[in-house]
Design a binder for these strands. Sequence first.
DNA 1: CTTTGGATCGTCT
DNA 2: GACGATCCAAAGG
Length: 200
Amino acid sequence: MTSPARPPGAGEPLHRGQLTGTAADVAPTLLHKVLVAGERSGRIVEVEAYEGGDDPASHAFRGRTPRNGIMFGPAGHLYVYFTYGMHWCANVVCGSRGEARAVLVRALVPLTGLEAMRGARPAATRDRDLCNGPAKLCQALGITGADNGLDLLAGDSAIMLLDDGVPPPRTPGNGPRVGISVATERRMRWWVENEPCVSR
DNA sequence: CTTTGGATCGTCT
DNA sequence: GACGATCCAAAGG
């Protein structure tokens, strides 16, 4: 009995219990999970952990504000923020309620909806440049502030986080986070080694 | 190939 | 009023 090949971008939503640990615990487990936005989807190949009140680099370090409120809610929701006057970035909220931990999704391998992604990102000359950065992948998938707070684990959400059976790498790359000026000694960035779609 | 600086505006001090 | 959890084009080697 041969089962048919699973369509690209298909899978089951993660269980919320998989996201209740610290951001540093959860982040590397999200490698190879699939982020889906309508017909567009990609496999996560680079992430960063932000630990809320324990982490000077986190948006939640100085407490709850109108912008970061979603981070203080339940795990599995999407935290989208606007930065540098023009870019959106997407996080998966994790930890327990009130802890404001989150994992920034930094890069994807495009799986489906490539034509829509190319249309959304005319600056990308190669397909590997469609989603190889936190703001690029939001542009490619059409994620904006309007999506802030969505439940990524609900079957009817416009944006979902799926497990299609591909396990995380046994030994991911690990190093300092990108683009921050504090807590730079913490090695809380993880990526899939030898993967062309990783940023930088 | 690497380095540099401009774009652009919401958010918090 | 200052500063980004960034990207890209242009300039330089």
